[in-house]
Amino acid sequence: MQIDTAQLTALAIEIAKILAAAVCILVFILLVVLYVVLKLRWVIARIQSRLGPNRTGPWGVLQTVADAIKLFQKEDIIPRGADRWLFTIAPAIVFIPAYVVYVVIPFGKGLTVRPLDVGVVYVTAISSISIIGIITAGWASNNKWSLLGAFRAASQLIAFEVPVILAMCIPVLLSGSLNLDVIVQKQAGSIRDWNLFNAFPMCQIACLMLLIAGLAEANTTPFDLMEAESELVAGFNTEYSGMKFALFFLAEFAEAFTLSALLVTLFLGGYNPPVHFLGGGLTGYWFSLVSLVWFLVKCWLVVVLILWIRSTFPRVRIDQLMNLSWKGLVPVGLANLLVTGAYVGLWVAR
């Protein structure tokens, strides 16, 4: 068989690119999680009239690094009676989807790893895989609290998958594409072109829905039912320690950042600058760089909003949460989808 050297070289370069992208994303996730956890502590400390971390490194910036190092040193405990094999792979099942989702996120102009044409579908499909990991963890731990946490996770995540998809359909309809890059490009221009400030009130409702349902999916207070400390000890990860626990932790905060990235991409103009003169006129690599900065700034603002919400609400109860999804968000989302569809079909398309 004839081996085409050019093809082989192209394949090698492609593999190298993929590996480089994978490492970049991993490093990015690690840095983001380290920062978000630190920011979480600072924001919550300020809201609670405390100081927060301020001892390790300048302004305490090394606190989460120190905590991470501590976690790596912890004894890795597998309880007697646990299913060792499932217990070990469960954290990976939770973490890998949270990691792989980043493939389609447009960090900046031309800074998407793979601008898939089914980007939105890909995100929802991949992120729902992590439920399986959580259920596996709860089951394999052989602990009642873990199992209860896993039950809750199953019902909660399935319940909120629906409103998340319903909310994401609105910008998809408006821009006529499932490709996240295209959705962002349709919002180019100034702040008035962002989805959040168009198609009143459908987009605003959808944005709020995505925020609420996304918080529930990302398992943050007030929706952190599956590991509710005061109710379930630590829920599905009660028996986990050391590196395995760190993976759960990493996945949780990576998901929280994914949520803010999605909100930014779908509703807040993605990497586009808010006004034209702040980088809108640039081209090439310069625009890629500026757009990356804008993307991160917007994500940062959404993350702060999420942390703010986190410290100002008590945890809702499981039945209240179910009611919120099935009796509140789902009907509203369906109606919203209908109205938007009619609006796009009868108004925009003409």
């Binding site: 919550i44 809201i47 609670q48 009239s49 405390r50 207070t221 007030p222 952190d224 509710a228 400390e229 005061s230 410290s311 100002t312 609400f313 008590p314 945890r315």
Partner: peptide, 16 residues
């Protein structure tokens, strides 16, 4: 009570 229902802001403010 705030802490029990995961409302730690209440806990911290009240203790202050």
């Amino acid at each position: 009570a705030g802490h029990i229902i995961a409302f730690d802001t209440v806990l911290m403010q009240l203790w202050r």
